[in-house]
């Protein structure tokens, strides 16, 4: 793992170790922040809130549209015929439009639609003049309310789509940091450390060797010295050193031999 694993292509130097450590720290901080952002986006109040509202709104929409269709049925009932074609042909300019504005959720800009109705252009004022006009106007109001609900839902949905995209990006980044960048940096650090250790050991061994050699040299030098001294002494005071050496061992052997017999 350590050396063979995925790592940055760096020279194992102390400087790059420092760099890597800084990078790891940065990655961890970034990971924490992104994780928190992702949590902020997915967990507490935003996305579930939005999705819950979408879910609710979608279900509510079914109901709203049913009411609206019934009011259209009422028009058909009162007018006594289908007005669809006429409506399609007389549509000219949209009275009902939307305006987009932005909303900030955890640092993500979400667009929101706002419905508004332009004044004074009514393509269908005359529809049902002789019969059913009141129903037509009422139906228009009902449908306008329904469309408002739809617009609201559309904003939620757009917000969700964008948020979903952002969450995906953030999560991808969190995962990338967590599963790729951090392990890789850690690997690199480990690698650098191991390389450095290796170097240390080599250095130590080398030093030891040097030291040994020095010792040996010293010892040799010492021996040389002794030899010279001994030679010098042998010439002068020859008896001194052998006297000490011979007397002591002789004493020990004698003492031991006596006591063993009793046992």
């Amino acid at each position: 793992m350590s050396g063979a694993g995925d790592r940055e292509p760096v020279f194992p130097t102390r400087q790059s170790l420092g760099l890597m450590k800084a990078k790891l720290k940065g990655a961890e901080t970034g990971h924490n922040l992104l994780k928190r952002k992702s949590e902020a986006l997915t967990n507490p109040n935003t996305v579930p809130e939005i999705t819950r509202r979408i879910d609710e709104a979608k279900r509510k929409m079914g109901r709203v549209m049913q009411i609206a269709s019934l009011s259209l049925a009422e028009v058909t009932y009162a007018v006594g015929g289908n007005i669809g074609y006429q409506i399609q042909e007389s549509a000219k300019s949209a009275r009902f439009r939307v305006r987009a504005k932005q909303e900030n959720v955890s640092g993500v800009l979400l667009p929101a639609f706002e419905a508004y109705q332009t004044e004074g252009n009514n393509d269908f004022a005359m529809t049902g003049l002789g019969k059913g006009g009141q129903q037509v106007q009422r139906c228009r109001e009902t449908y306008a309310r329904a469309v408002e609900a739809l617009v609201e839902l559309a904003s939620l949905q757009t917000a969700f789509v964008i948020l979903d995209e952002v969450i995906k990006v953030v999560n991808r980044r969190v995962n990338a940091i967590e599963h790729v960048i951090i392990p890789r940096t850690e690997n690199t650090i480990k690698y650098i450390n191991s390389e450095l250790d290796e170097l240390d050991r080599e250095e130590f061994y080398r030093l030891k060797k040097v030291a040994n050699k020095k010792q040996r040299d010293t010892a040799a030098a010492d021996a040389e010295m002794k030899k010279k001294n001994a030679e010098r002494e042998a010439n002068g005071e020859k008896h001194k050193a052998p006297e000490v050496d011979d007397s002591t061992p002789a004493d020990i052997l004698q003492a031991e031999g006596d006591e063993d017999i009793i046992f």
Binding site: N122, A125, M126, G128, L129, G130, K131, G132, G133, Q134
Partner: peptide, 15 residues
Amino acid sequence: RRAINITLNSFGTEL
């Protein structure tokens, strides 16, 4: 019926 309806429905239109 038509007269009444036309009158009622024409309020607010360009008629």
